[in-house]
Computed example of a mutant assay.
Amino acid sequence: MLKLFLRKLLIAIVATLTFSVIFSYFSTTPGEGQLFTFGGLFGFIALMSAPMYILGGIPVSIMIDRYWKWPSLEILIYALCGALLMLPYSFIVFRVSGGQYIVMMMFGASAAIIFYFVKGLLHKLFNKYGF
C-alpha cells in the first residue's frame, strides 16, 4: 500500500508540474505590461493545484484503479471526478459563484486528464524499472 501511495504521489507531483507549465504558458502574454511573469504564474498555479492533486487526486485515483472495471472509459471517469472535486475546492479557496463554476470544473477536468496521461506514462516506467 505504501508503494502504491508513493507511486501516486510521484504521479501527482509530475502532474502538478505539467499542469502548471501548460497553463502558465498559455496564460502568459509576451510583451510589456503583463500582470504575471511565467515564473510567477507557474508558482501560483503549482501552489493552488498541488493540494487538489495530493488530497483529492491520489485517493480518487486509487479508488478508480481498484473499483473501475471499464478501462476504455477510464479517462472519462477521471475527467468527471476532476470536475466534481473542483466544485467544493473552487468555492472554499476561490470563492467562485455563478457561471464561473463551469470554468472551474473545466480546469478540474483538464487537470484530471493530465493526471491520467502522466499516470499512464509513469506506469510504463514503473513497470520497466521496477519501482
Rank of each mutant, 00 (worst) to 15 (best):
I113N: 02
I62Y: 07
E74C: 07
S27L: 13
W68E: 08
I92T: 09
G99L: 11
L4N: 10
S20N: 05
T18P: 01
G108I: 13
G56V: 07
L85C: 02
L122C: 05
W68K: 14
I75M: 09
R95E: 10
I22E: 01
A79L: 06
W68N: 11
K128Q: 10
V118Q: 03
R95D: 09
I58Y: 07
V60Y: 01
I62C: 03
S20W: 02
G120N: 13
D65R: 14
L9A: 13
L55P: 04
L55C: 14
Q34C: 00
P51A: 08
W68C: 12
F36C: 06
K128R: 15
L87F: 13
S27M: 13
F91I: 13
A46D: 03
M86R: 06
V93L: 12
G39T: 14
P30F: 09
A46E: 02
G82Q: 04
L87P: 02
A15V: 08
A112T: 02
S20T: 11
S20E: 03
Y67C: 07
L85Q: 02
L80M: 10
G120M: 12
I58D: 06
F131G: 05
L17H: 01
L84P: 06
V60C: 14
A112R: 04
Y67A: 12
H123W: 02
M63E: 03
L4M: 04
I58A: 11
L35D: 07
I62S: 01
M105V: 08
L2R: 04
P59D: 08
E32H: 05
F91Y: 12
M86V: 05
A12L: 10
V103R: 08
K3W: 00
L4E: 10
L17W: 00
M52S: 10
G39A: 14
L41Y: 03
L41V: 07
F126T: 01
V96S: 09
T37C: 08
C81Q: 00
I114G: 00
M48K: 11
I64Q: 09
L121I: 14
F5I: 15
A50S: 13
M1F: 05
G57Y: 00
M106H: 03
L125W: 10
K69V: 06
S110K: 01
F91G: 14
Y101G: 08
M63N: 07
G40E: 15
G43V: 09
I77H: 01
I114Q: 02
V93C: 03
Y67T: 13
L55H: 05
Y25M: 10
G39I: 11
P59C: 10
P71M: 09
K128T: 09
Y89G: 08
Y67R: 13
Y101C: 06
S61D: 14
A109N: 06
G31C: 06
